[in-house]
Amino acid sequence: MDFNGALLAVTSVLELKDASITFGGLRAVSPLSFAIPQGQLAAIIGPNGAGKTTVFNLLTGVYAPTSGEIWLDGQRVASAGKTIRPNALVKRGIARTFQNIRLFGDLTVADNVRAAFASHQSYGFWHALLQTGKMASVESAIEDETQRLLQVFGLTNRAENLARNLPYGDQRRLEIARACATNPKVLLLDEPTSGMNPSETADVTRTIRLVREQLGIAVLLIEHHMSLVMEICERVIVLDGGVKIADDVPSAVQNNPQVIAAYLGSDEPELNAVIGT
């Protein structure tokens, strides 16, 4: 670890160092750098095709970067052409949700959360086969944590329902709860409010605040609802065509002419209103 890395390890949980990715001849993400400090709530925004979800897939080990490095909690987890498997990355402290909600539909709400303890609270095959005391003690620890998480996310009375029978808003809340059950240091939310009505959006906004304030997890979210981004985020990273064009507090980004141009293809001042709330 070089000096710079050691220094950053103390201050940031997640860091991209000039990470880029190319698919064939298409450069989806140009060398991109940013660092998320502990407990920060940041957003990535950008027009369609800007590379937001690709950045998430880089961070979660779905793709290996073509060049550059990714650091998670002081350890290098990906470098040019190399990355570790998504489930191993989860163990290191990164969790995510998906743009189209992905739950374990035929499992109960409680089991969805319990399943996510696999990476850090588990026991081996033989303990399961012989139903040993270790299994009983680990299961009871998982159960306590699960009940606590369900309580925090207001899903206690839904615990025994099948996940696929939940209303849309609850499904998103459960997906976030499940991600939090992996005990992450940073949580990536891919368009948590897509397809939601205003009241469901308000509910998700509350949930995101909850994650940060009650569980102390850093949150990085992709979002198109500008009102939500401006309301809760401390920092906004703007991507366009795989290039970072702005990285600042929301009010500054709102007035950045480059950002406005990226979204609207012009820099006419009166269009500021569209970006703002």
Binding site: A95, R96, F98, R102, F104, N112, A115, A116, S119, R178
Partner: peptide, 14 residues
């Protein structure tokens, strides 16, 4: 059962 229901989500849940 998690793998049965959604393999990608299972991988992303550790």
């Amino acid at each position: 059962r998690a793998v049965r229901d959604d393999e990608i989500a299972a991988e992303a849940s550790g």
